[in-house]
Nucleic acid binder design. Structure first.
Lengths: 337, 337
DNA sequence: CTGTTAGCGCTTTCAT
DNA sequence: ATGAAAGCGCTAACAG
């Protein structure tokens, strides 16, 4: 049924070894021999059995993506990342294996599983900052790239934007528009990015001569509903607020919804800025001003680092800081007087 | 470095064979022996090498997803499907491998590649109805599940909703609200679903005693922009139109945008109905009335059929018709008089 | 340049 | 109930 090397060998009259070398482009094969063999291989529709290849070379041509947060998986964030990883993997003749899991066990188990599945490395997304196995993981000599978790080691690195900068860009933008009372709706504290964006909010306020009051900050959980609730709270407690910065587009969409409910015009009465620049930011009304992070590139870069590590023992992984870009749209405008 | 069967064998004092059988739950192993072996395996953090397993059993525990349309990949449609496939795969101890490719070569090549990569079967999404290799593919004795392409064979089937019904449900809903002039913005004709939804539109009109004029139909391409353009055309050519049914939520979002531009109130002046029920349908204003198809379940069911085929030579694949459900929201209302 | 031999880690007859 | 031996399809020394 399936065509193997020895089929090609028999039909071409050469040994399995020679056929293998010919097909793998080794230099120690006669040109004519190679051509004949390639010809036969084509006729027979031969494709190397990757499984057998992998078993013997122990060189995995597979990278994996672990997505820890199931809900996360369903939004565009991860879809774009997968897309980027896929492109990069394809380019290097790697395959992409997907896993979703609620929780990771020990780092050792995780790594064993990966290795035995033939993975050359794994991207892990959705890890909480307080995840106990984090430290073990970096010590593990297994190529790992983390998304939005600041970990570095000889075989581990991470990809992120500068979230402090990103958040302060948002505040700068609003301050430039004359806003002085700026509320902040953050994601849940277990995410590293939340801590960073909070820091960026503080920094942004300060560098614009504004004092961040603690009542200006609401901790949401990245969901739309938490954005809605946050806007309600913030505005009820601080009627002077003229702008809200939400740490995700989805939460910003919730803010928009709540403002409409409260019959507050955006941006005439309240300006709103999100974070991510997912598609939904152009679907809502008004279109969201937001801080863009390019998840497709996250995926590409993560895969790139992983493949480099998997292919070269000595490759030293690089932490990659991707740019965060302010995308001004209709949801932000001059502060009313 | 990695723990193998023979490590466990040596440490436990049994032969590789026995250890293998013990760990695989064969009945011909002494209970105590099994316990001892399991104990050692646990201590050593043993995990079976899937690659080796696969090579010898030729039973692939991997299924693949081919996504043919790159743009498609980036929307929620495919992300939810992946999520569903992943859950189902995990449940059955299968892995999920991802591929994106612009075009497929011959069916034979596709299948060879899959087999040599160790795939037990593949889900293919984004195939055009006129794809030449379709016929070969079903003849191929390789487990295949197609998404939204009506193909059936001994080892092939497809998953879809009844798109004719879905579209007619949309028209029924609008007709019930008193609309008589209903425009239709379709997806591109190369998609099977477009043909079906067109048929459903016609049928829906007729069964409500309405005559579908050809000028009421616009062929878009599933993009938001084409929805916007469609609304513009339809309304310019037929000012009497009071409702528009778009064959995707994204196009419906474009319709909404255009109507706002034209200062037509939704739903007071024009009602809008979409198709899919993606998240964006609740992000737009007003929230979209739409025909829901559950892509997560698409993924689960597709994986299920695939795994059943891959695990059992004799399993006869079932075409699965998932329900389409009208989800009434704010974008549709009574026809104005 | 080409072939012989060995072995990756595992499962599976076939004996015992 | 357990073990010895063979082999899945391939690559990698090592000879010649």
């Amino acid at each position: 049924m399936t065509v193997t090397l020895s089929n090609v060998a028999r039909k071409s009259g050469y040994s399995v070894t020679t056929v293998s070398r010919a097909l793998n482009g080794h230099s120690d094969v006669n040109v004519e021999t190679r051509q004949k063999i390639e010809q036969v291989a084509r006729e027979l529709h031969y494709y190397p059995n990757r499984v057998a290849q992998q078993l013997v070379t122990k060189k995995a041509n597979v990278i994996g993506l672990y997505s820890l947060d199931r809900e996360t998986f369903q939004n565009q964030f991860i879809a774009l990342m997968i897309s980027g990883m896929m492109d990069e993997a394809t380019r290097h003749n790697f395959n992409l294996l997907l896993f979703a899991t609620q929780r990771l066990h020990t780092a050792q188990d995780l790594v064993s599983q990966c290795i035995h599945r033939g993975l050359g490395g794994a991207v892990i997304s959705g890890l909480r900052i307080d995840e106990p196995l984090l430290d073990d993981l970096v010590a593990m000599d297994f190529p790992t790239v983390l998304i939005d978790v600041p970990i570095e080691g000889p075989r581990a690195t991470y990809v992120s934007v500068d979230n402090v900068l990103g958040a302060s860009q948002a505040i700068d933008h609003l301050a430039d528009l004359g806003h002085r009372s700026i509320g902040f709706i953050n994601g849940h504290g277990a995410a590293w990015v939340s801590q960073q964006r909070y820091e960026g909010y503080q920094k942004g306020m300060q560098q614009n001569g504004l004092t961040p009051k603690s009542s200006y900050v609401f901790e949401g959980d990245f969901s739309k509903e938490s954005g809605r609730r946050g806007a309600e709270r913030l505005l009820r407690a601080n009627p002077e607020i003229t702008a809200i910065f939400a740490a995700s587009d989805l939460m910003a969409a919730g803010v928009l919804e709540q403002l409409q409910l409260m019959e507050l015009d955006v941006p005439a009465q309240v300006s709103v800025v999100g974070f991510d620049d997912q598609d939904l930011s152009t679907h809502v009304t008004p279109a969201l001003t937001t801080i863009r992070q390019d998840m497709y590139t996250f995926g590409r870069v993560a895969a790139q680092e992983l493949i480099a590590m998997a292919s070269d023992e000595d490759y030293v992984p690089q932490h990659v800081n991707l740019p965060s870009v302010l995308v001004p749209r209709a949801s932000s405008g001059p502060a009313h007087v």
